[in-house]
Design a protein around this nucleic acid. Structure first.
Lengths: 205, 205
DNA sequence: TGGAAAACATGACGAACAGCATGTAAGTTC
DNA sequence: GAACTTACATGCTGTTCGTCATGTTTTCCA
């Protein structure tokens, strides 16, 4: 825990700000977007409503900031493990595993809450889109160099297919679908991906 | 429009009930779960709050009923077109198209709203799970006979992979992702599925 | 060291919500 | 056709929400 004595203004500001954003994410994960109130966030962050008022003019702005905070975290989490992937078929399988763990974790759960909420909230939507696109492209960037000799467009296809499949599986997990089936599906998809990878690498179109 | 004169009690009941459930779905699609209030539903259904009180003891019960109403509709929508699918490779591609249109429509949008909300709402969750599982199995049932000579377990894999991929893509569509990319991904997946289908049909493991 | 400014706390206000209690109209039963 | 039941409407209540106006503490700077 960071000490509370003799903090500079910038430190104080940053500290409560991240506390608020982290608390917001916690709320999204624990109680969902619909029940995420400013009061609840404040309670979890250990600050008053006046604080959030001082940092963010409206609740929507808090959410928008939370989106960026969230994707930044997710990005860091993915980047750490994606960097050191082996190349080739086993690398593809490992990358899929990483994408799955990344998109099925608590961070992605919070993102999903915000996504669904953003569908009917133009303001939130405007905040999410650029950040999410940036995350996708950055991740793709790191993933592509795993599939070395694969044609870039096919590697990109594989990536986006995996991301979307993973998100669908994450949704299934949220509702309490059978974990065994998800595991099987993921294993099957890895087999397919490796197969495709080899096909495309040995006999490109 | 059904006449309002001389309705039997059962007719009245059924009529306002479906009006309420349809209005609930409309609300979910238009404003999202978070902003779906009983008042809004009543306004759209053209009834009073007392009516919903009479039919459903609590808001959660309304939502639960809406889930069933929703999946029943979705089921009917899918069943109508799945019944007359050709068998073989072209049938697989057609089936994937159908699953996509089914899971990317407004009905599925409403389902997603409820799904995500249900994650943090045990009551709603308990209502959704059985209905959703039934929908999945019924759809699988209808799909399997498309892939005639394919081993059942592999057909099931293909089905669930498609469903989860489709749901991920639907989520992407909700946020306003690139429609072109979605089309490409779906086409690619169809190619892959047909390829796998042929592989498994000609040289089963 | 004192005052300015930033960071944060407290309390209050109007709006919207879900649930309920009560009233009214339409259909049923005999 | 009159008692009865079901279906629905209206208005109220307590609560919770987001926002704001105002007070208090902490840091900064000269």
């Amino acid at each position: 825990m960071t000490s509370t004595a003799h903090r500079t203004q910038a430190q104080r500001r940053e500290q409560t700000r991240t506390a608020l954003l982290d608390a917001t994410i916690d709320c999204l994960v624990d109680v969902g977007y619909a029940r995420t109130s400013v009061q609840e966030i404040c309670a979890r962050a250990g600050v008053s409503k006046g604080a959030v008022q001082h940092h963010f003019t409206a609740k929507a702005e808090l959410m928008a900031a939370a989106v960026e905070h969230l994707t930044t975290k997710l990005r860091g989490q993915l980047a750490a493990s994606l960097d050191e992937l082996p190349s080739g078929g086993t690398g593809v399988a490992a990358a899929i595993d990483l994408l799955w763990t990344g998109y099925s974790g608590t961070l992605s759960t919070a993102v999903t809450e915000l996504w669904v909420a953003a569908r009917t909230d133009p303001e939130l939507r405007a905040a999410i889109r650029p950040v999410d696109r940036a995350l996708g492209r950055a991740t793709l960037e790191q993933v592509t160099h795993v599939a070395g000799e694969l044609p870039p467009e096919r590697a990109e296809m594989l990536f986006w297919l995996t991301v979307n499949l993973t998100r669908g599986l994450a949704l299934d997990a949220e509702l309490g679908g059978d974990p065994n089936r998800r595991r099987q599906l993921l294993e099957e998809w890895k087999r397919i991906a490796v197969l495709l990878y080899q096909d495309a690498a040995t006999a490109p179109s």
